[in-house]
Design a protein around this nucleic acid. Structure first.
Lengths: 300, 300
DNA sequence: ATTTTGTTTTTTATCTACAATAAACATTTT
DNA sequence: AAAATGTTTATTGTAGATAAAAAACAAAAT
């Protein structure tokens, strides 16, 4: 088959779950915009809702007839986009212990194991190569460079350069800029998290990403923004499987963030620089500690 | 047809031009290694050389019978890899005046005009996207962001961060390191170029790339090295078409390079930093001046 | 006049097939 | 035994086909 209609299914589920009986639905373009899909897809959703007897559809009139049930939805396995499936599956493999640096990556084998065509795998690998974890030999295979301490060091170096730059730019933002409000909101979220820390400390990584993204956006630099994707994906997949000391780690990071936020709000370049450095140093340490030691390496 | 044998043709030409009559050729693995191809391809070359009566091939004995002529070679159009063809063709389009920022990029149309399949174009665009000049809307088209002043500014900012970092690292390289010799050689090349400057100043860009690459390698950082590709491609295609003031530009750059080299050799961090900054500032200026002004912009 | 719906066309995402190339295996030669 | 050649197999690179999704066009309703 040529293409799965996962976008349709996912959008259908997303729209259907929140339908309330006896309400009227908006126009097709409105629905499409709301769901972030084209009108063609929105119409396909309406068509199915109508066929399933969930709505009555007659031109402009779209009335919800009944509360949709779980049985009306597509099963969750059918709504993942191929790209997400491949990403998850691939990251799982390369973060696992079996994955040794220098290992060859076989497109056909990957495709078969994931249950997909080779072109999607190829395109994924090309896209993924910018994360610096794999490398291609022309006319030949991909090689896994691996999640090694070299990788972590190089990542941390660039991250520090970029974040110091972005933080300095943030400090120069004009007083009326939206970013200051966003920063305030993030500060409040930190305090809220701190309140119920024992039960909620796992939510920190989401907040962490949001905070650093806000700072990096201040740099207004596409290369810096793109690079943050690398960091985000590494942290996302890495710490998802490495939950050791999560509580202590997060407690420390929150304290550093609050300091950092205060420094930004002071707009004093030197204070910003200092607070940023403190946080980056501990982030580097956290990252380095989480690297699996390869044979012959000694813990630093 | 599925795949062009451009690799074979290109390697055949490369090997054939330097054959001398009455010499013996080395073993198949040696030939393959020399040409950077697999033994299968090396054998295909030998087979053709034999069929064309250029060599006598009997197992280990491979004697060159006659001097190959131009007619023995494949025409140059047949030896370009598809990737190179697409890159050239695409860069030509997006650097041309017709290419306006915001313009949509159509995969099928591009493929037709270049005379190739859509998959190659797709993969090229994915790879190319890391240069920050195009952007994809999911399930929809690519958009040309364009070679704008914003692009140049963002590029220059990152370049400066990276090069200052790399130059500092270079200064810390141990005395016996190969890089110091390479630097000396590059210094000599600068002096040589200066001697016949009027006739050879166009060779400068090759030397420039070599010099900066050497510096960036000192950082030992894959992200910095990858980023230098972005700079290299922009300079390569951009200045290929913008030859205005090339002589003055290059003269100035050479002087700055020599200063910069001397600073590196002094290993004095502050001197290195200062010389690097001077050169980067003028490189930035050169880049900014070369940006086509879009409507409404005023020259800075 | 503008928005909404109905219909058709264009474009992208993905799969499959197949030639070129690389890699592996087997045999021969030194 | 090691290296070279001969032969077979596996893998990548590219084209072409097709369904999903987007976009464009046309008609109808406010």
């Amino acid at each position: 088959m040529a293409r799965q209609n996962t976008l349709f299914k996912e959008a259908y589920n997303r729209y259907t779950v929140r339908l309330k009986p006896d309400t009227e639905l908006p126009s097709e373009p409105d629905i499409a915009a709301e769901l972030g899909v084209s009108r063609s897809t929105a119409r396909a959703i309406l068509m199915r809702l109508s066929d399933a007897g969930i709505i009555l559809w007659n031109k402009r009139q779209k009335t919800v007839l009944r509360q949709p049930t779980q049985a009306d939805l597509f099963p969750k396995e059918e709504t993942d986009s191929l790209h997400d499936i491949i990403e998850r599956s691939f990251m799982m493999r390369i973060m696992s212990d079996e994955a040794q640096p220098g290992m060859q990556i076989n497109e056909l084998e990957l495709a078969r194991e994931i249950g997909t065509g080779t072109s999607v795998v190829r395109e994924f690998l090309i896209r993924f190569s910018r994360f610096g974890l794999i490398e291609k030999r022309p006319n030949s295979h991909w090689t896994l460079k691996g999640f090694t301490s070299e990788f972590a060091l190089e990542l941390a170096d660039v991250r520090e350069m970029f974040e110091l730059h972005s933080a300095a730019e943030f400090g120069r933002l004009p007083p009326g800029h939206q970013a200051w409000e966003d920063l305030k909101a993030i500060e409040r979220e930190h305090h809220k998290l701190l309140k119920d820390f024992d039960t909620h400390y796992r939510d920190f990584s989401r907040l962490d990403e949001k905070f650093h993204l806000l700072i990096h956006r201040a740099s207004n630099n596409r290369f810096i923004a793109d690079f943050y994707d690398v960091i985000a994906i590494v942290f996302h997949y890495h710490f998802q499987w490495n939950k050791a000391f999560a509580r202590e780690r997060n407690a420390r990071a929150i304290a550093e963030h609050l300091d950092y936020i205060e420094a930004l709000q002071s707009r004093d370049p030197q204070r910003i620089d200092a607070a940023c450095r403190v946080h980056l140093a501990s982030a580097r340490q956290t990252l380095m500690q989480s690297i699996p030691l390869s044979a012959g390496e000694v813990p630093g």
